[in-house]
Design a protein around this nucleic acid. Structure first.
Length: 573
RNA sequence: CGGGACGUAGCGCAGUUUGGUAGCGCGCUUCCUUGGGGUGGAAGAGGCCGUGGGUUCAAAUCCCGCCGUUCCGACCA
């Protein structure tokens, strides 16, 4: 941290952004001289980026240590045997960067370290007395992404903090999980980010619960639903939806009506002059065993494939062929559960069961039923009724009932409780108090360090450049003499620089003999939270100027009495 | 892996249609000028036109292969 003069700092800013960058944060990282590309999804971090990364890492270390974590450093190169033992050598497959040594022994560049850390603990930890144990590292990770994108957002080499917890029982695991959940909240709060801990689907990893820590930003790749009131947030695939009260209309007798050519909800609603919410939409899937699955949601809702998979116990869903639909008694475009063969799996969204006098297909070309009342008319055996719809903007929160809004975010971290998946696969056991051998209850917890940096940029910027939160800014303050050739100005600026340095403030002295405009543009682009400008006024009346990057606010202060106020302003950034 | 686009100086691009001396803006070097939001001027340096092959008297330009980049899709949690 001794490179503090701009004349020696290697920060090659660019006026135009290279054509390869698509999203704003990626462009800004290139333009502000933070990173340069070495290969697809592989980057060199330049000094400014390294300073920010170190600051993020320091915050992470402090919080991990405070939560009881102990830092270790595991190898990047991992033997294939371990991965074959856990069964993930083939599962991870093409995602893994594989290496062969001169003896033809296989290795991979670690995409994650569950195997590594579990084998370590398996070989070393024998007794419940040594638990709980939390081990972490901050390490380069490798994933051979099909399509690296967006700079550090989806890269093939990336810096990740990964912590693994080992407990004697589920209760202990849940305590560790909670500790990590809190530590993560502290990390992202301290980084100055607007984020949400988002309830997530565990997917193939299995185990208990999982949260993704998502930094809110429109360019993010994850869709999430957030409650406007209680803080509930969940990924769109996971988000539960509070069921509104059932319609109270009188049930009318069901009637078959001709509806020529209305094979979509829009056409149907238009034809009958009714709102889409009065219709029932059908979506037909086939699963990995060629089972036909018919899902029904309200006309103005969307089916949620993840929820459907979970509801029917399918691993994979594809759109069903028309012939498969007909085989179970359905008619594409005019489907309903009424009269469908038993062999089809029928899943109905809970909200549909609340509908009264709805319109649904008649399983016959160009005909629908009206006055359909699902509680009365859906009589299929084995029909599954549950929440299978995709959350929408304005849906009620499952916790408090207030409205939720949809937003996008960048997943910067995630916490998983794993249970005994890896400890069992790798035979990692300890001897418990009762004299019995038991597998460890594990959890794993990751933070993408580079991704966190980029998420901060994606979230905080304006047309001039990056706006760093103070905690992770490469420098907190930049001191700029307007005219570096003016000895008086330069001397005052240098004095202020020395004073700030003595106060342990992370300060850069922009001593370059550039014109003021050039230096100002660079300052804004790189995004130092605070700029101290020393110009003519300083030489004449002894006044310096402080500019807050975030608000653009400026303040004139005497050059011999500014420190208290500057520190005060800095605190609020 | 499928479909599209692109590859010419450090960055952004023109030139390719119609084959014939490699260009522009920014940046860089030196000097002068200017000195509170990318100042103005002068003189320079810098290119295996991604790569390999082919066609041709002659290829940045036409043809074929490969590599790389990028977008959409598939994939991934």
């Amino acid at each position: 941290m001794n490179l503090m003069k701009a004349t020696v700092l290697y920060a090659p800013t660019l006026r135009q952004s290279p054509a390869e960058a698509e999203i704003l944060s990626h462009k800004l990282m290139l333009r502000a001289g933070l990173i340069r590309k070495a290969a697809g999804g592989v980057y060199t971090y330049l000094p400014l980026a390294v300073r920010t990364l170190r600051k993020i890492e320091t915050i992470i270390r402090e919080e991990m240590d405070a939560a009881g974590g102990q830092e270790i450093a595991m190898p990047i190169i991992q033997p294939a045997e371990l991965w074959k033992e856990s069964g993930r050598w083939d599962v991870y497959g093409a995602e893994m960067m594989k290496v062969t040594d001169r003896h033809d022994r296989e290795f991979c560049l670690g995409p994650t370290h569950e195997e590594m850390v579990t084998s370590l603990v398996r070989d070393e930890v024998r007794s419940y007395k040594e638990l709980p144990l939390m081990l972490y590292q901050i390490q380069n990770k490798y994933r051979d992404e099909i399509r690296p994108r967006f700079g550090l957002m989806r890269s093939r080499e990336f810096i990740m903090k990964d912590l693994y917890s080992f407990d004697r029982d589920e209760e202990g695991m849940n305590i560790s999980y909670k500790k990590m959940y809190d530590a993560y909240s502290n990390v992202f709060t301290r980084c100055g980010l607007d984020f949400r801990p988002v309830e997530a689907d565990n997917g193939a990893i299995g185990g208990g619960h999982s949260h993704e820590f998502t930094v809110l930003a429109p360019a993010g790749e994850s869709n999430i639903a957030c409650c406007t009131k209680c803080g509930y947030a969940a990924s769109d695939e996971k988000a539960e939806i509070k069921l509104p009260a059932a319609d109270t209309e009188e049930m009318l007798p069901m009637e078959k009506i001709p509806t020529p050519g209305t094979h979509t909800i829009n056409l149907l609603a238009e034809f009958l002059h009714i709102p889409a919410a009065k219709t029932i939409k059908a979506v037909a899937f086939a699963d990995e065993n060629d089972r036909v699955i018919l899902a029904f949601v309200r006309g103005d809702h969307e089916a949620n494939e993840t929820k459907i998979k979970n509801a029917v116990g399918a691993l994979q869903l594809i759109m069903a062929e028309d012939t498969a639909i007909c085989a179970v008694g359905g008619e594409p475009g005019f489907m309903s559960p009424i009269g469908i063969n038993e062999e089809a799996t029928v899943v109905v969204d809970s909200a549909v069961m609340n509908m009264k006098n709805a319109v649904t297909g008649a399983n016959e070309r160009d005909y629908h039923y009206k006055n359909v009342n699902p509680t009365r008319d859906f009589t299929n055996k084995n029909m599954i009724v549950t929440d299978i719809r995709m959350v929408q903007d304005g849906d009620p929160c499952p916790r408090c009932g207030e409205k939720m809004f949809m937003t996008r975010g960048i997943e910067a971290g995630q916490v998983f409780s794993l249970g005994t998946k890896y400890s069992e696969a790798l035979g990692a056991k300890f001897l418990d108090e009762d004299g019995k051998e038991k597998p460890f209850q594990m959890g794993c917890y990751g933070i993408g360090v580079g991704r966190t940096m980029q998420a901060a940029i994606e979230q905080m910027n304006d047309e001039h450049g990056i706006i760093w939160p103070r905690a992770i800014a490469p420098f907190e303050v930049v001191v700029v003499p307007v005219n570096a050739k003016d000895e008086k100005q330069f001397a005052i600026a240098e004095k202020i620089y020395e004073e700030l340095k003595a106060e342990n403030i992370d300060v850069l002295f922009d001593d370059r003999p550039e014109r003021a405009g050039v230096k100002f543009k660079d300052c804004d682009l790189i995004g130092y939270p605070l700029r101290v400008t020393v110009g003519n006024k300083a030489a004449e009346t002894g006044e310096i100027e402080i500019k807050i990057r975030k608000s653009g606010e400026m303040k004139n202060l005497p050059a011999d009495n500014y420190l208290t106020e500057l520190k005060e302003i800095l605190k609020g950034l």
